[in-house]
Design a protein around this nucleic acid. Structure first.
Length: 639
RNA sequence: GCUGGUGUAGCUCAAUGGUAGAGCAGCCGCCUUGUAAGCGGCAGGUUAUAGGUUCGAUUCCCAUCACCAGCUCCA
C-alpha cells in the first residue's frame, strides 16, 4: 500500500506504508539524513524510526528548528543524567527538560556535589557519546511504569506518573543501562550530540515548591556545531563583562545602599541618561497629541479598594498612616489618572484622550529577587492612558504598536517579539468585557500581520495585554512595553463622556508603557551598549584634553563653546601627560575626545578622537560642533 | 521569601587565633607633556553589625543586615 506524504513546502510524494521518517530523509539526501534529529508527523513530534502508516504531513526536524533544538537538548540532558548515574549510582533523577539556550536536570544526590564535579561528568558524557548508544522507546501501561520506577527507588518519577490519567500509556526511553521516564522524542543515538558544556550548578526545589525537597540542578547547553557552542559561551562571558551593576559603579551612574535595598540612587551621570530617555519620550508624545500629568505617590487606601488593587495587588503594596487614616503608596499610576479624568466632564469630541505620566511607583518585591536596575522596589513607568470610544479601540492599539516599534528602532532594537496575555485567575470584570478586550488586541495584531505568541492567564488583573520583548545584542530578551485594554476601571470609577446623543456613555481605556520601567530600560541599555552610549545619550559627550598647561585657556574656551551649543563637555586640567588623559577618557567611555595643543590653539581647532577609534585629525571647532549636533539630533547609534 | 555562598581601604583583591597588606583611585610635590598608565611622597581600615567561645577574635561559633548565584515571582 502506498501513502502520501506532504512536505512543509506543500510538495507531496508517495511512499510505501510503514516508511520511517529516517528512510524518507535518506531518500531526500544524505545531508538531511545526517541532520535530521526527529520528525513531526501531522504536528506530533516523533522519533525518526517510527513507521508512518497513513497519509500524513511530515516535517523533518533538525537543530535549526526550534522543536529540533529542544529535542536535541532534551536528549543532552538524558546523556548527562546517564553520566551522573554512572558516577553517582545512588543519585535520584527528578526532571530534566530543555530550556531556552540549553537544558538542566534536577537530581537528588546522597551527598552534595560542587562545581568541581562537573568536568568529570562532562568526561563521562564524552564517553557515552563515543559509545554511540541508541535511544529506544518503550511504551507501557501506567501501573507497570509505576512499578518500574518504584523498583528503581525513584519517588520523583513515581509521583509524576501517578498524576497521569489511569489509562495513560507511559513511555520510557532506554539508552544502554540507562532508562528514564520521557514523552520523547529523542535524537537517534548519543553520538548525534556534537557539542555541549555543563554551565552551572544550582539548588532548585522539587516542583518549584520551597516546602519540598531541595534538589541539585545541573545546567548545560548543547549545539549541533562546536563553533556555535563557542559563540554562545562567548556571549555569556561578554554579558558578564557588561553587567550593568559593575558598569553603573565604574561610570558613576547609580548606586545601591543598605539603607534602602532595591531603591536605586541615581548619580549625576545616571540621571543625565534617565533624563535623556524622558526628554526623548516626552518630545515624541507631544508630537502625537499626548497630554502629560503628574499624580501623588501616596493616596488614601480607599482608592485602592475601589480600583481593585487592594484585592488583587495588596501583597506588592506598601501602606502607611497619615493622621490615623490608612494610605497606600501607589504601585500603579492609573487610579490617580482616573481621578483627573473625573475632575471635569468629557465630550466624545475630545477622544481619543491620551494622557502620559512619568510616574514613580513602589512595589514590594521579595528580597531575593532584587537585581540591580532590572528588579527594584521603586521605578518610574513611562505610563500613559488612552481613553477612547469603543470603535476607536483597534485604531489606537495599532498606533501604539507602531509607536513602540519606532522607539525600539531608535535604540537599535530591531528584533522584537510580541506576546498576548489573557485573563488570569485573580481578576475583575465580566467575561464579555475580557472577550471584547482580548479580541481588540488580537484583531489589531492580525490586521498588522504581526506574529505573536499567546500566554494564557498572564494578563493584568483588570485586562488582557500585549507585551513587547526586545532582543539585545547578546541575544537576550527583555520584556519592556505593554499595551493593556481595560473596560473595568472606567466602570469602577464611573468614567463617562457625553456622546453625540447628549447622553452619558462609558469610555474604554488603554494602559500602556513603552520603556516599561525607565530604570530597567536603562539597565538594558547599559548592557546593550556595554556602557558605550550613543552620543545623544552619553552623560559626558566630549572630553576636552589640553596637551599642557599652556593650552588650558583654549581648552576652557572650547568647553564653553560646546556647552553653549548644548553639548555636555568636560575639560581635564590635570597636569598628567596627554596619553594619560586619553586613557582616562577612554576608560570613562566618553564618545568624543577633543585634544588641543599648540597647533589647535593657533587655528582655533581641536584634534578629534572618537572612543575606540583613535585619532581622526584636527577640525575647526565650528565644524566639530555642527557635526556633533547633527549626530545628536539624528540620535545616531554609531558615529 | 527559600537554599547555598560572600562581606577586609573609594575600587579590585592579599594575609593571620597574638589588633592587617598590595595595586588602582585620592591628596602633595617634581616633570610641561601630541593620542590607552611619567616619577617620588603622603594619607587612608573599630576587618558589615551585634553577641558568644578564648588570656587574646578580623580569623572559630551564633544572630542580624547587605550583596552574589539559583528557585519562586515580575516592569
Amino acid at each position: 500500500m502506498e501513502i502520501k506524504i506532504t512536505f512543509p513546502d506543500g510538495k507531496e510524494q508517495s511512499y510505501p506504508a510503514g516508511v520511517t521518517p529516517r528512510q524518507i530523509a535518506e531518500g531526500i539526501g544524505p545531508g538531511l539524513a545526517k541532520a535530521a534529529l526527529a520528525a513531526q508527523v501531522d504536528g506530533l513530534n516523533v522519533d525518526l524510526d517510527v513507521p508512518i502508516n497513513k497519509d500524513a504531513a511530515l516535517r523533518l526536524l533538525t537543530f535549526k528548528d526550534p522543536e529540533g533544538r529542544d529535542i536535541y537538548r532534551h536528549s543532552s540532558s538524558h546523556i548527562m543524567a546517564q553520566a551522573v548515574l554512572r558516577l553517582y549510582p545512588k543519585a535520584l533523577l527528578a526532571i530534566g527538560p530543555a530550556i531556552e539556550d540549553g537544558f538542566y536536570y534536577d537530581i537528588e544526590f546522597p551527598e552534595p556535589i560542587t562545581p568541581e564535579a562537573l568536568p568529570a561528568i562532562e568526561k563521562e558524557m564524552e564517553k557515552i557519546i563515543k559509545e554511540d548508544i541508541v535511544f529506544k522507546r518503550r511504551e507501557l501501561p501506567r501501573d507497570e511504569a509505576i512499578r518500574f520506577f518504584a523498583d528503581a527507588g525513584n519517588k520523583f518519577k513515581v509521583e509524576l506518573i501517578r498524576e497521569l490519567p489511569d489509562d495513560a500509556v507511559v513511555s520510557i526511553y532506554h539508552q544502554g543501562e540507562f532508562a528514564d521516564l520521557c514523552r520523547g522524542p529523542h535524537i537517534p543515538s548519543t553520538k548525534h550530540l556534537k557539542a555541549f558544556k555543563l554551565t552551572g550548578l544550582a539548588g532548585a526545589y522539587w516542583r518549584g515548591d520551597e516546602k519540598r525537597e531541595m534538589l541539585t540542578r545541573i545546567y548545560g547547553t548543547s549545539f549541533a556545531d562546536p563553533k556555535e557552542l563557542k559563540e554562545h559561551l562567548a556571549l555569556i562571558e561578554e554579558a558578564k563583562k557588561r553587567d550593568h551593576r559593575a558598569l553603573g559603579k565604574e561610570l558613576d551612574l547609580f548606586s545601591f545602599h543598605g539603607e534602602g535595598p532595591g531603591f536605586p540612587f541615581f548619580h549625576h551621570n545616571g540621571l543625565v541618561l534617565y533624563n535623556q530617555l524622558i526628554s526623548f519620550c516626552r518630545a515624541e508624545l507631544y508630537k502625537r497629541g499626548y497630554m502629560e500629568i503628574k499624580t501623588p505617590i501616596i493616596l488614601n487606601e480607599e482608592l485602592w479598594h475601589r480600583s481593585g488593587h487592594w484585592d488583587h495587588y495588596r501583597d506588592n503594596m506598601y501602606f502607611t498612616d497619615i493622621d490615623e487614616k490608612a494610605y497606600a503608596v501607589k504601585p500603579m499610576n492609573c487610579p490617580g489618572g482616573l481621578l483627573i479624568y473625573r475632575s471635569r466632564l468629557h465630550s466624545y469630541r475630545e477622544f481619543p484622550i491620551k494622557v502620559a505620566e512619568f510616574g514613580q511607583v513602589h512595589r514590594h518585591e521579595k528580597s531575593g529577587v532584587l537585581h540591580g536596575l532590572f528588579r527594584v522596589r521603586t521605578f518610574t513607568q513611562d505610563d500613559a492612558h488612552v481613553f477612547c470610544l469603543p470603535e476607536q479601540l483597534e485604531d489606537e492599539i495599532g498606533k501604539l504598536v507602531e509607536l513602540i516599534l519606532y522607539f525600539y528602532k531608535v535604540f537599535g532594537f530591531e528584533d522584537v517579539r510580541i506576546e498576548l496575555s489573557t485573563r488570569p485567575e485573580s481578576s475583575i470584570g465580566s467575561d464579555e468585557m475580557w472577550d471584547r478586550a482580548t479580541r481588540a488586541l488580537q484583531n489589531t495584531l492580525e490586521k498588522m500581520k504581526i506574529a505573536h505568541k499567546i500566554n494564557p492567564g498572564d494578563g493584568a488583573f483588570y485586562g488582557p495585554k500585549i507585551d513587547f520583548h526586545i532582543r539585545d545584542c547578546l541575544k537576550r530578551t527583555w520584556q519592556c512595553a505593554t499595551i493593556q485594554v481595560d473596560f473595568s476601571m472606567p466602570e469602577r470609577f464611573d468614567l463617562t463622556y457625553v456622546g453625540e446623543d447628549g447622553k452619558e456613555h462609558r469610555p474604554v481605556m488603554i494602559h500602556r508603557a513603552i520603556f516599561g520601567s525607565l530604570e530597567r530600560f536603562l539597565g538594558i541599555l547599559i548592557e546593550h551598549y556595554a556602557g558605550n552610549f550613543p552620543l545623544w545619550l552619553a552623560p559626558v559627550q566630549a572630553a576636552v584634553l589640553p596637551i599642557s598647561e599652556k593650552h588650558f585657556g583654549w581648552a576652557e574656551e572650547v568647553r564653553k563653546k560646546l556647552e553653549e551649543a548644548g553639548i555636555r563637555a568636560a575639560t581635564n586640567l590635570s597636569d598628567e601627560k596627554i596619553t594619560r588623559k586619553v586613557r582616562t577618557a577612554e576608560m570613562q567611555k566618553i564618545p568624543a575626545m577633543l585634544i588641543v595643543g599648540d597647533k589647535e590653539m593657533e587655528s582655533r581647532s581641536a584634534a578629534v578622537r572618537r572612543h575606540g577609534a583613535g585619532d581622526l585629525g584636527a577640525k575647526p571647532l565650528e565644524q566639530i560642533i555642527s557635526d556633533m549636533l547633527k549626530e545628536i539630533a539624528e540620535k545616531r547609534i554609531k558615529p
